[in-house]
Design a protein around this nucleic acid. Structure first.
Lengths: 185, 185
DNA sequence: ACCCTGAGTGAGTGACCCTTCACTCTCTCT
DNA sequence: AGAGAGAGTGAAGGGTCACTCACTCAGGGT
């Protein structure tokens, strides 16, 4: 007979993944311990390892949860677009993304993932996430390749601004970089 | 009497910094040990620490050496420009940058620096390096703020492509991202 | 009543890493 | 010749971390 209810392990894994998003976003892959994630998930380190036997698997689970939220936010943003031209949809998706990463968590996790993309499983997960984002942006907006590429490029600029905390620098070079990428609410 | 010759320590420090560039670029801040850098510089770990008493200082030295090379390459590129219009100069600087980061080293180090920019000294050094790059690109090209911002944004896209090794993916979404950012030789 | 499966943990292990410290050796200046 | 400064190192300490293992406990089927 097929199981009709999820085991508690299957229920607990996404909770642990959510905790991993928070912790890895804070400390990065090498700067975060399994004990950190376990504490955030309120279980023992040993049980985290039982759910995700290797640290990379834990990071990959966090990264997948991160990209799920990103695509979901882009979709919600696109649905809100008044101007349904490709550029209009892309602009609204950009605004939705800017709002999503207001707390830095999901953005930092992506940057940390870039930093350790040499770990095979993490590189694969990163490319899978990017593929989802790019494919969605392209198909949902109907924009040209160039427009979608520009969308991603300015998203990466946004990552730089946030990681280096350039938006708190009042000098000219910093304002040049941040100009226009803060979307109006 | 003023010293007329550099002490060997003063001569050795840039050598250690160069080794630190290589090693930190490979493993990132937390993934690289002082022993790794010491081995690459062919000295003992204890002496690395005598030259750079804290690990962050070693990383900062590497990052400064990295940005020095970047600005130097941009300058050399700009000098080679045939088309001396702002966009022409920026294009040639982009080509020079693309050539410089062909071996991934300097690019990876910048991404790792973004990842640990929360460490105060590293964040400060990262902003200082970016400031140099932006100020130089702006003043040397004479381009508009928007043109310089676009120059940096597509540079960041380039970082993403290289870190995630997207240029080795033959699918449509990947070609969309990489299209046109590989400058002709 | 009995067993068995799976959730969950405490305690440990082997490895590694940053940093310190006492030490040696080689110049240079007097 | 002697002293002193600075280059450079070996060894060790104190701490941390990923991962293992043997274990307890609760619930459900028979």
């Amino acid at each position: 007979m097929a199981r009709t209810v999820l085991s508690t392990a299957e229920l607990r894994m996404p909770v642990v993944a959510a905790a991993a998003v928070q912790e890895f976003a804070r400390g990065g892959y090498h700067g975060t311990t399994i004990a950190d994630v376990a504490r955030a998930a309120k279980i023992s380190p040993a049980y985290v390892i039982k759910l995700y036997p290797r640290k990379e698997q834990l990071f990959v689970a966090a990264l997948e949860a991160c990209f799920d939220q990103v695509v979901e936010a882009l979709a919600a943003g696109a649905d809100r677009a008044q101007d349904t031209s490709p550029d209009g949809v892309l602009y609204t998706m950009g605004a939705a993304y800017a709002e999503l990463i207001g707390d830095r968590t999901l953005l930092m996790l992506q940057v940390h993932a870039q930093s350790v993309a040499d770990v095979p499983e993490i590189g694969t997960a990163l490319r899978a996430g990017l593929r989802e984002v790019v494919d969605f942006a392209k198909s949902r907006s109907g924009g040209s390749d160039e427009a979608v590429q520009r969308f991603i490029a300015y998203g990466q600029l946004c990552h730089l601004v946030v990681t280096a905390q350039i938006d708190e620098v009042p000098e000219a070079w910093a304002r040049l970089l941040t100009e226009g990428i803060r979307h109006p609410a």
